[in-house]
């Protein structure tokens, strides 16, 4: 019988893979990892506070540039920053002119077929928070909830809850309930209500098919979840 034989071969392949993990396989068709190591990493950045802050375009700040610098340090590489719109950067990534693109991308990104998105390295949520002493009905019926003017929270509040959305310019100055990102609640002295408006799974974009490179980056990100959360809470402070 050849089928049990196949099973053994597959098991052997797996064992070999486990033994080799981290070094040989998978390989990059275009050799990105080997090219970047001990050399230069070309990274596209697009503004998206607090993920990427481009006050000084030559020296990007924010959660993701910090992560990129740490990743580059782990590979003993320099970072060359390229600023542009998401579409420009993804195009350059696809054509092999960039090695990574960061800009607060999430798994819902429309670029799934143009770029390899990493496994989400962090999930954030948009929540409704209330001041500690207040009590609100579970369905937020007719409760005034502040949201930052022009953010998606306003629309989500109207669609998903019975709350009365109130657009404000600065959440810090608003009183009462507010809809905002989970990492901001503490700073705004709000307590979460359990009403979740949206969830974002954050990712970084790599070139399609450069699997050694992708795996290396994902391993780097996934082992640092706690560190990344702390980084966000520090960087995201208003």
């Amino acid at each position: 019988m050849k089928h049990p034989g196949r099973k053994i071969r597959i098991a052997a392949t797996l064992a070999a893979a486990a033994g080799l993990s981290g070094c040989e396989l998978p390989r990059d068709p275009d050799g990105t990892l080997d090219r970047v190591r001990d050399a230069t990493m070309r990274v596209g950045v697009t503004e998206n506070d607090p993920w990427v802050q481009l006050a000084d375009p030559d020296n990007p700040q924010g959660v993701e540039p910090t992560l990129v610098r740490r990743f580059a340090a782990a590979l003993n590489a320099q970072v060359e920053w390229v600023e542009g719109s998401e579409e420009e950067l993804i195009g350059a990534l696809k054509e092999g002119q960039l090695d990574l693109v960061v800009g607060g991308l999430t798994r819902k990104s429309p670029w799934q077929t143009e770029a390899a998105l990493t496994r989400p390295y962090l999930s954030t949520r948009v929540l409704v928070g209330v001041p500690p002493a207040t009590r609100v009905p579970e369905d937020l019926d007719e409760v005034a909830v502040a949201f930052e003017r022009g953010s998606e929270a306003g629309g989500l509040l109207g669609r998903k809850t019975d709350a009365r959305p109130v657009a404000v310019d600065q959440l810090r100055k608003a009183r009462g309930a507010a809809a905002t990102d989970d990492w901001l609640l503490d700073d705004l002295r709000l307590r979460p209500t359990g009403v979740e408006l949206a969830k974002s799974d954050h990712v970084i974009a790599a070139p399609l098919g450069e699997n050694a490179w992708l795996v290396r980056l994902e391993r780097f990100l996934l082992t640092r979840r706690g560190e990344i959360r702390a980084l966000l809470e520090r960087t995201g402070r208003p």
């Binding site: 597959i10 797996l14 486990a18 993990s21 496994r119 399609l208 098919g209 992708l214 996934l222």
Partner: peptide, 23 residues
Amino acid sequence: EHPPLGVIELFGEQIWLGWVMLP
């Protein structure tokens, strides 16, 4: 178009998806 395959987390280990696909 090059197929991207990243890692998956299984029992706290990060394993390349390709190796998980085989079994």
